[in-house]
Amino acid sequence: MAATEEIELAGPLQGSRYRPSPRRLVGQAILHLVLLVMSFVSVTPFVWMIFASFKHFQELVRSTALLPKVWTLENYIEIIGRVNFPAAFSNSTIQATSVTLCSALTSAALGFIFAKYRFWGKEKLFTLLLSTMMIPFAVVLVPLYITIADLKMSNHLSGIIVTGLWSSFGLFLMRQFMESIPSELLDAARIDGASEWRIFFTIVLPMATSALAALIVFIFLFNWDNFLWPLVVLNSPEKQTLPLVLAGLRSLYWTRYEMWAAGSMLTVVPVMLIYIFATKYFIRGLSMTGLKP
C-alpha cells in the first residue's frame, strides 16, 4: 500500500517542470549580457588586426571601414623579407618546443613522485617548491643572468632553454591530477613485476594525457610570448625570438600600423592553431585537476 502511494505521488512530480523565478531569469540575462560585452571588447582588437594586416597604409589611416577595399599581401612579404622573420620563427619554435617538452616531462615525473611516494619531508619540500611561484622574476633576473653568463650560455638559445627545464606550476598541476590515479592499480602492476619506470611511462602518463595537454598549452603559450628573459640573454639579431623581432618593428616602422598588424598575425597564428587543436584536452585537463579555465 505504501509503495502504491509513493508511485502515485511520484507521478505528478515527474510530469511537472521546474520553472525558474523571474528574478533568476533577469539575473541570468544580465550575466549573459555582461559576458557578451566582455567577449566583444576582447575580440574586437584582434578582428581589427586581422583586416588591418591586409590593408595598404593610406587606406588604414584614412578609412574607417573594417574590411579592406583592396586586399594585399605586401605587408607580409615586406616584413618577412626585411626583419628576418624566418630565423626568429625558427628560434621561437626551437625554444618553446624544447622547454615545453622538458618541462612537461619533469613536471609529470615530479608530480608522480609527490603524489604516490612517501618520504621524509615530502610536504615541506613540496611547499618550498611551490613558494618559488610567489617570487617575482625581476628579483632573480640578475643572479640568473650571471649564472648563465658564467656557464657560457649567454646569447645562445640554450641559455633560455635551460632555465625552463622544470615548472613549479606544472609540478602543482600534475600532482593534483596524479593523486586521483588509484594506488591499487600501481600496486597491481608492481606485483606483476613492472618496474617504476615502466609504471610511469605505460600506466601513469597515458592516464594523465588530459592534464599533460593542459600543461603543454600553458607552458607553450608562456614561452612563445616570453619577452623579458630572451631580451636579457640574446643579443645577436640572428638569435632573437619572435617577440623581440616584433618589438623591434617599432624602431623600423614606428607609424606603419599595417606592418605591426602583419607581424602580430605571424606571431599569433601558430599559437591559435595549437590552442584550437588542444582545446578539448585543455578544458578536460583543467576540470580533472580541480582548476577553473
Score class of each variant (00 low, 15 high):
100 T>W: 02
100 T>Y: 03
101 L>I: 15
104 A>I: 12
104 A>Q: 04
110 L>C: 12
111 G>M: 01
112 F>Q: 02
113 I>P: 15
113 I>F: 10
116 K>A: 12
118 R>N: 14
118 R>G: 12
122 K>N: 11
122 K>S: 14
125 L>V: 13
126 F>I: 10
127 T>F: 14
127 T>H: 15
129 L>E: 14
131 S>L: 06
133 M>P: 08
134 M>T: 03
135 I>Q: 00
136 P>M: 05
139 V>R: 02
141 L>M: 14
142 V>K: 01
143 P>G: 02
143 P>H: 01
148 I>V: 04
150 D>P: 07
151 L>P: 02
152 K>T: 10
154 S>Q: 10
154 S>P: 02
154 S>V: 06
160 I>M: 05
161 I>K: 07
163 T>L: 05
165 L>H: 14
166 W>E: 13
166 W>R: 15
167 S>N: 13
169 F>P: 14
170 G>R: 00
170 G>W: 01
171 L>N: 10
173 L>S: 08
174 M>T: 11
174 M>K: 06
174 M>D: 07
176 Q>P: 11
176 Q>N: 13
178 M>D: 09
182 P>C: 06
190 R>L: 14
190 R>E: 15
191 I>P: 01
192 D>S: 09
193 G>K: 05
197 W>V: 12
198 R>M: 11
200 F>I: 03
200 F>V: 04
200 F>D: 07
201 F>K: 06
202 T>C: 12
204 V>N: 09
204 V>F: 11
206 P>M: 05
210 S>W: 05
211 A>F: 06
212 L>K: 01
212 L>N: 00
213 A>W: 06
217 V>I: 10
217 V>C: 02
218 F>A: 02
221 L>G: 05
221 L>N: 12
222 F>D: 07
224 W>C: 04
225 D>M: 09
229 W>R: 01
232 V>F: 02
234 L>M: 08
235 N>W: 07
236 S>Q: 07
236 S>L: 00
238 E>Y: 08
238 E>C: 00
240 Q>M: 03
242 L>Y: 00
242 L>C: 01
